[in-house]
Design a protein around this nucleic acid. Structure first.
Lengths: 148, 148
DNA sequence: CCTTAGTAAATGCAGCTGCATCTATATGAG
DNA sequence: CTCATATAGATGCAGCTGCATTTACTAAGG
């Protein structure tokens, strides 16, 4: 029986360690900027944006899960909170009695629009301003390779 | 009054979105591999490794916080759990009556050694195998620029 | 000394996440 | 039609995280 535990190279280990630390640090900084401006967390923005992008079609919770890579129970509760906050609505689904269709409310639209300038500025400040345009593209390409 | 809300470019926004999604996805996969092998979470490994690296010197909780970018209360509780599991010990600090010095136990060493092959293989499988050596270095360089 | 300010670490509480399970509906085989 | 299986989504419970505050000690100025 052959051991196929291909261990990672030093270069790989360094890259991995950097990826973990830097991405968590940057996400934390951006989240902090949103919070400091009185806005909800990033995940809420992601939901609002996906729902907006899907228009005029509407999404169901499981579609949102797939797109945002969130666990089912996690999405269920996130939608609970957003519904309680009045940003979305769950409408019973005609074709499938088990499910719902998600709709952004006017207030949800307003929150999304209000969040974007803060989010955009945070992305620029903590991330974009530290890379040239070419570097950003290189990074995107590398991360895309990692996406499988 | 001049608006200086330098908005991020399209390339920057794409890179940011990829970074957030891909890093969270990869970390999740690696964590899942550790858990599937019956090991503790990544953060535990980070602590054990930092303590090991510091030898023969020993670290105090606040030094670990700085190195691992964890919040103070978060570190305090992580150390609680690890102490309860018998992997580390908190020894009262001679020079500073407020603090403690952290020591890995034999079992902590054993756990760290047992975790590494699983962790290494997960890094290779989900991350390293998808990049050439040159790409890993390029990625490290880009992430280093983001580190400020 | 004593007082004041600062730092190391712990903790109560509320909200979030993971896991397992549960409910309700859909779908497909016989 | 009926039963088995699969899928959409919710939920109880335990553990983790964030926030604010507390406890214990150090340090520095009068």
């Amino acid at each position: 029986m052959t051991e196929t535990t291909d261990l990672p190279s030093e270069a790989t280990i360094h890259a991995w360690a950097r990826l973990v630390r830097v991405s968590q640090d940057l996400i934390g900084r951006v989240e902090a900027d949103l919070k400091a401006a009185g806005h909800p967390p990033l995940a809420w923005y992601d939901v609002l944006l996906e729902l907006r992008r899907a228009e005029p079609d509407r999404l169901r919770p499981y579609q949102l899960q797939e797109r945002l890579l969130l666990a089912q129970y996690n999405m269920s509760r996130l939608l609970d909170r957003m519904a309680k906050a009045g940003l979305i609505q769950r409408v019973p689904c005609e074709e499938d009695g088990r499910g719902h269709i998600l709709a952004i409310t006017e207030e949800g639209q307003a929150v999304r629009r209000a969040m974007w300038p803060v989010y955009a500025h945070a992305i620029a400040r903590h991330f974009g301003d530290r890379l040239t345009a070419g570097e950003a593209e290189t990074l995107t390409a590398l991360l895309t390779k990692l996406k499988e």
